[in-house]
Design a protein around this nucleic acid. Structure first.
Length: 308
DNA sequence: AACCCGTGGGC
DNA sequence: TGCCCAAGGGT
């Protein structure tokens, strides 16, 4: 007896047996529904793409957009950012969150200026070697900026694959070898089409196949989605651990850095002391910021964003 | 592998 | 309101 909810593989009702590759309807959908984002315009260039990828790590598009515009206007090339003090990058980062990304972007700009003649490298391994660039971002820059063929596995794509192909509501907590294998298997052969597929599958996850309240009625592959065909079974595995925030060091760090960002000159310790009552945690948070290179301690209990 | 790292908006 | 989520990376 075969499972009633699952079509027999290769049989006439098997959605994958249609002969149409998964990417075809998704790319067609993307042609019509892609958002007009600044880093997708041709004039953004590889540097624009790279800046956007740093900013978009764990941060929604709506919050990135204005900061991105200001950033590119001020530092149109990597060398322009490289010659600034790192603290200026941290200040311009504003309230995007995870300010270490600003420091890494500054470091990446410096490395690009030194090692690659000021041009964002097109080589995946060279991208991966830059600070702040991991597996996802290296593939994303190589694909979006240079049209190369790489599996681009971000949280959106992983969710689309989990549902459409694997038939589960959510992907595993950490990217698995099976997911990488699947991503590679689904990649179109032709280079430009592979790059288009990467952007299209991400967009589908961002706009339609969202974490909550997915809109299957707008999905170009709903008719062949394994999760939907199985009746959308709820996620069963271990719950993803919630990220508590209130009362954590992260909150304290955020408050300390906010004071330093908004100050024009060095800030006395007494001013920083006012952002948090508990002295042990407060000191630990400040030490952490200094250790991370986000804050520079001066003599006489003064602090500032790093000049070097 | 598990944990750390910010911030704000939606429900 | 509190919880969940958002184009991850580094250790």
């Amino acid at each position: 007896m075969t499972a009633p909810t699952k079509p027999s593989p290769g049989g006439p009702s098997d959605p994958a047996a249609s002969g149409v590759p998964l990417h075809a309807p998704v790319i067609d959908w993307f042609d019509e529904h892609a958002r007009d984002l600044p880093w997708r315009r041709p004039e953004a260039g590889a540097w624009g793409v790279m800046v956007s990828e740093f900013m978009l790590q764990q941060t929604p598009v709506s919050r990135v957009q204005p900061v991105y515009e200001q950033w590119l206007a001020r530092w149109p090339r990597p060398a322009d950012l490289a010659k600034e003090a790192p603290g200026e990058a941290v200040r311009a980062w504003g309230r995007l969150g995870y300010p270490r990304r600003a420091l890494r972007l500054h470091g990446a700009a410096a490395a690009i200026t030194e090692r690659h003649g000021g041009d964002v490298p097109a080589d995946h391994a060279q991208l991966l070697a830059l600070p702040g660039i991991g597996e996802y971002t290296a593939a994303a820059v190589a694909s979006f900026a240079y049209g190369q063929r790489h599996p681009v596995l971000d949280t959106n794509v992983r969710r689309v694959f989990a549902r459409a192909v694997t038939g589960v509501q959510y992907p595993p907590n950490a990217t698995t070898a099976a997911e990488r294998k699947l991503a590679r298997a689904l990649l179109p052969d032709e280079e430009a089409r592979a790059a288009r597929w990467a952007a299209a599958s991400m967009e589908l996850g961002a706009l339609v196949c969202t974490a909550k309240n997915e809109s299957c009625h707008r999905c170009p592959i709903a008719s062949r989605c394994a999760w939907r065909l199985a009746g959308k079974p709820a996620h069963d595995g271990p719950p993803r651990r919630g990220q508590t925030y209130a009362g954590t060091d992260r909150q304290v760090r955020g408050r300390l850095l906010a004071v330093l960002r908004e100050a024009t000159g060095p800030v006395p310790q007494a001013a920083l002391d006012q952002v948090w009552q508990e002295p042990v945690q407060r000191a630990r948070a400040l030490d952490g910021l200094v250790a991370d290179g986000l804050v520079e301690p001066l003599a006489d209990g003064l602090y500032r964003l790093p000049l070097s």
